[in-house]
């Protein structure tokens, strides 16, 4: 008799991803699905993915899903969560979405301490539109709209999302993780689980920033892309817990 030792999480749909070879979106999707399974919350979870490479996330998760306008997922999540607090609500957003066009929605959902979970994919580039500069593109990085490399004086400096959000009183939890090695993937899953658990425990706004690769638009092989992430992104975006407090709404309890 055979024994299953590895299988698809139930909350991950049995369909092929559209993601490019070597892209780490697949890993993060799986981690999110594993966490939903382990917490037993699939039946009450609502996921929200706005515009970006993960726009089709509604095809990949088995829970109820909403496709939101570009940048607006935290506002949509606010609407869902405030209407049905019993639901577990998460957004899955890229860097352009969360830290450029949706900055206001991100900052204000955090400052309100919305009891939601945000999974933030930082790969330092716009993937879906084909490799343009993202707010998190690092200085010197070549993209199709920074063909001579990002220059501070011209395009400004990269946005440090976890650092920024950790200054806000409504943020309960902000951690930056990476999915470049098995060890880091295990740590990433732990962080994602904590971000969902926080919501169940009504702790407030929780965000996990995941450093990810975009081999296609970086113009690197998947393996080289992982190396590039470690060498170039990690010094700019150090991994770690930026904020972890018990309950942002304590004064009301």
């Amino acid at each position: 008799m055979s024994k299953t030792v590895f299988d698809r999480p139930h909350s991950l749909s049995p369909v092929p991803f559209h993601y490019c070879p070597g892209c780490t979106h697949g890993i993060v999707h799986r981690l999110v699905a594993e966490v939903i399974d382990e917490l037993g919350i699939e039946g009450r979870t609502v996921g929200i993915a706005p515009v970006g490479c993960s726009v089709f996330a509604y095809n990949y998760f088995e829970c109820d899903m909403i496709e939101a306008p570009h940048g607006r997922a935290p506002a949509v999540a606010t609407g869902v969560k405030r209407s049905r607090p019993e639901n577990v609500v998460f957004t899955y957003q890229g860097d352009g979405d969360l830290a450029a066009i949706g900055t206001a929605e991100t900052v204000h959902s955090a400052t309100r301490g919305e009891n939601i979970t945000i999974i933030f994919i930082n790969n330092a580039i716009y993937g879906m539109t084909g490799g343009q500069m993202a707010p998190t593109t690092i200085l010197g990085q070549v993209t199709t709209t920074t063909p001579y490399g990002r220059q501070a004086a011209v395009q400004g400096c990269p946005v440090h999302v976890c650092e920024m959000l950790s200054t806000l009183d409504g943020t309960a939890y902000a951690e930056r993780v990476s999915v470049d090695t098995p060890k880091n993937i295990i740590a990433a899953k732990k962080a994602i689980k904590k971000a969902f658990t926080n919501q169940i425990e009504k702790k407030g706004f929780s965000i996990v920033e995941v450093l990810s690769t975009c081999p296609t638009n970086w113009g690197l092989s998947p393996a080289d892309a992982l190396e590039w992430l470690r060498k170039n992104m990690m010094p700019v975006y150090p991994l770690g817990v930026y904020k972890d407090v018990d309950n942002v709404h304590k004064e009301e309890n």
Binding site: V46, R72, V76, G79, V80, E105
Partner: peptide
Amino acid sequence: ESEIAAINMVLGASSA
């Protein structure tokens, strides 16, 4: 925080 956020909160609530 803005009209844009407000209508998207409406979108979320209506979805719910």
